[in-house]
Amino acid sequence: MRIAMLTYSVKPRGGVVHALEVSEALARRGHAVELMTLGRPGDALFRDTALPVRIVRHTPPDVPFDERIQAMLDAYTEGLRPLLAGGRHDIVHAQDCLSANAALTLRDEGVIEHVVRTVHHVDDFTSPSLIACQDRSITAPDRVLCVSPPWVERLSADFGVTAAVVPNGVDTHRFRPPRDAAERDDARRRADVEDRLTVLTVGGVEPRKGSLTLLEAFARLRETLPHRDPLLLIAGGATLFDYRHEVERFDARVTALGLTRHVRRLGALEPDEIEGLFRAADVFAFPSVKEGFGLVALEALAAGLPLVASDLDVLRGYLTDGESALLHPVGDAAALAAALTRVARDPDLREHLRRGGKEVVAGFGWDASGREHEAAYAYMGSVAR
């Protein structure tokens, strides 16, 4: 098959990582895959790949948010037009509402025949432009996929859309435990964590990630285990959306709690830096309010980190409380703090969770995801026979 895989960014958000990994898995299975995305002038994809990568260049104008989104959509649509024209692809697969709307416009104009869309989750947008973008991207495609069963059920109930499940995966060559004590020590030295109890989260500061809940829990953890001098590392956060007000609230609360020297917002990092943080940390916290799957939680398990996470239905799809993770009620800072404290104090629990996490990871490979995508594409009658 000739596949155009569309995503909205060159930054390592979950949906972008999924798009790249699935594309590489499909290429390993013999398909001709091109990854297409939107990026600023000079930007490159977050990591190297052997795939052809087509970046539609666009500098968002300094205009109100809805106008900026429309400008991005217009630029992406026009940039994709020559890349997709002429029937060069059997499959056009969009991973987000922005790329899906660009592709749908081209489909409606007759430039391409169909659009496949993976819905990772449904956001609670308030912006009229994004509400319209999201709704159209769910109801108008020719085939809809999800990465977890709960979202299949929600799309059916809320939008009347029938979707199929395609699994996520994890790259166990990149996300792995330290090979030995020396590699662990080197990772901790590079992260500058000394001998402190180090809590890691990845995803930046935003409402959906439960950042303020994590901060309150971390403050409690420091009160409970002052002799361990806990440190909170927050990596990632590159996103299309403007969360400056959430960041301002977060920073103000850090100051009010007296945690300025104990909380580090690291921002977007290179892949090898992120992988190093996983090997340096002691525990991974994932207090999200909403997720499509929670790919970074799977990466934490693959890296051998004990995981403390929100009790979300999508996470219960592959995590078991007390076996592969400690799950806490969504938004409950006290419960999150108690779970982090248990992990920090109990080496037997940490080892138990690592073993359980390793068993979970064994069931998630990107090649298996590639096979499931083939089946989804075949359903559309687009596979050459």
Rank of each mutant, 00 (worst) to 15 (best):
I112L: 05
R249L: 03
G356D: 02
E299S: 05
D346S: 11
G331W: 04
G322T: 04
L266N: 08
G79M: 10
R342A: 13
L240N: 12
I91D: 08
P52S: 07
E78D: 12
L259G: 08
A217N: 06
G14Q: 03
T77Y: 12
S156A: 15
L353K: 02
V296Q: 00
A368H: 10
E273F: 13
R117E: 02
R354A: 09
R355H: 13
R184C: 05
G357Q: 06
T224S: 13
V165Y: 00
A71C: 10
L106E: 00
A339V: 10
V343M: 07
L45H: 02
P347H: 08
L327E: 01
V115N: 03
F364P: 01
D180Y: 11
V314K: 09
A19C: 14
H31Y: 06
H227A: 15
V383C: 14
L215M: 12
R176I: 00
E153R: 15
L80F: 05
V296M: 00
F159H: 09
E223G: 15
V283W: 00
H120I: 07
A368I: 07
A181C: 07
P271C: 11
P52K: 04
A102Q: 04
G365S: 15
A238C: 01
V361L: 03
D158A: 07
H31N: 07
T320R: 15
P64F: 01
V314R: 08
A4N: 06
V17P: 10
F125C: 08
R68V: 09
T139I: 14
I69F: 12
D272V: 15
L130R: 07
F250C: 02
R136G: 02
F175N: 13
R355V: 14
P306W: 01
R261A: 15
A338P: 02
A44R: 15
F250S: 04
T260N: 10
P177D: 09
A338Y: 02
